[in-house]
């Protein structure tokens, strides 16, 4: 009886705490990875105001959370960081009773080895790293391999993203190694190959690579597929190529960081974005593939058949998903990255 009383009292306290949760949600997300209209629709329906901050690499997000900073309620880690973050106690367990819309997600993306039972994360979007081409300047048919970027005619016209991990993954694949290869000799070979590409590189940018394509500064570049899709809305001539050695895949998830002040709001938001019509809208607006099976059914035909957003099985031949790498390897990547940009 006494126990029951305590439980009731506790439930009362918790309940009132929940009810008192401020109508705010602090979302820490990749740049341009959540349409403003979705945030507005969420606020309109629930009265919860979303404050969004952005990052351009998962490493950056991880470093800020790990340092205990931010006060964020929701983050968008790629799968290869979910495992590391859960292991290090950086994520709150999810309450599945508050996430009925999880049933809409394609089961083949649920209960994966990086997060068994989806205890800490729900699938969000699938992105790939391939080659964006401005077909007004370069015939996309002439680009079939990563190694085509090294052709002398693209000198001064190539864009690379300013992220060591993804770029090394690409060059490792171009050389026939795995994107997740941690052998220092193979990484050094990739570094030497990158040095050969450097004279062709006009700029490094990961925040918004599409801008340089729209401004006409570059004609080819290694970017995320959504960048090509969003760029295409403003400049018709932009397109996206899946190189034959295989693209780099990253599956992004949403998770609640440890100590989040508004976990209830975060669950509400998670459930909201897993609604079929919202998930479809997100994919339509950003150009990344939704992992929501019900949403796929709602997609306009021209989007569902758009190879930039929804690649064919053939496009994804040899594709590889990024995996967690040891800190030592990440340090090696970073050292080479600094060296790449230091030698004259």
């Amino acid at each position: 009886m006494k126990k029951l009383l305590i439980a009731v009292a506790l439930a009362g306290v918790l309940g009132s705490a929940n009810a008192a949760e401020e109508k705010v949600l602090n979302l820490y997300n990749w740049t341009e990875y959540m349409p403003k209209e979705v945030l507005k629709a969420f606020t309109k329906e629930t009265g919860i105001k979303v404050k969004e901050s952005n990052y351009a690499s998962t490493e950056e997000m991880y470093a800020k959370l790990k340092a205990g900073g931010g006060g964020y309620d929701l983050v968008v880690p790629s799968t290869y960081f979910v495992q590391r973050m859960a292991r290090e106690g950086l994520l709150e367990p999810l309450d599945h009773t508050k996430l009925p819309n999880l049933k809409n997600v394609d089961p083949k993306f649920l209960d994966q080895p990086f997060d068994p039972g989806n205890q800490h994360s729900v699938p969000y979007l699938l992105s790939s790293v391939g080659i964006t081409v401005d077909s007004a300047k370069v015939d996309p048919k002439t680009i079939t391999s990563w190694l085509d970027l090294w052709k002398p005619e693209y000198k001064g016209n190539v864009l690379l993203m300013d992220v060591a991990r993804e770029t090394f993954a690409v060059v490792q694949k171009a050389l026939g190694y795995s994107a997740n290869d941690t052998d220092p000799a193979h990484i050094e070979a990739a570094f030497n190959k990158m040095k050969e590409l450097l004279p062709s590189v006009k700029l490094f940018n990961a925040e918004s690579p599409k801008v340089s394509f729209i401004q006409g500064e570059v004609s080819v570049g290694i970017t995320w597929n959504g960048e090509a899709f969003m760029g295409q809305q403003e400049k018709k001539s932009l397109t996206f190529v899946y190189p034959k050695e295989g693209v780099i895949l990253a599956m992004d998830t949403m998770a609640i960081p440890k100590g989040a002040k508004h976990p209830d709001n975060a669950h509400k938001f998670l459930n909201f974005v897993m609604r079929p019509e919202i998930a479809a809208k997100i994919s339509e607006s950003l150009g990344y593939g939704t992992l929501n099976a019900e949403a796929i059914k709602l997609l306009p035909k021209e989007l569902a058949s758009n190879r930039i957003v929804y690649p064919t099985a053939d496009d994804l031949k040899n594709a590889e998903l990024l995996e967690d790498i040891p800190t030592e390897t990440q340090g090696l990547y970073e050292k080479y990255w600094s060296e790449l940009k230091t030698a004259k």
Binding site: E59, E60, A63, K64, F204, N205, E334, W337, S338, K341
Partner: peptide, 21 residues
């Protein structure tokens, strides 16, 4: 400059945000 040069500031920033060092 298109992030093509590593300056001291970049080096320090990357150690904290990317290299975990």
């Amino acid at each position: 400059g298109g992030s093509k040069t590593t300056l001291i500031g970049n080096l320090i920033q990357r150690q904290f945000l990317s290299a975990r060092d």
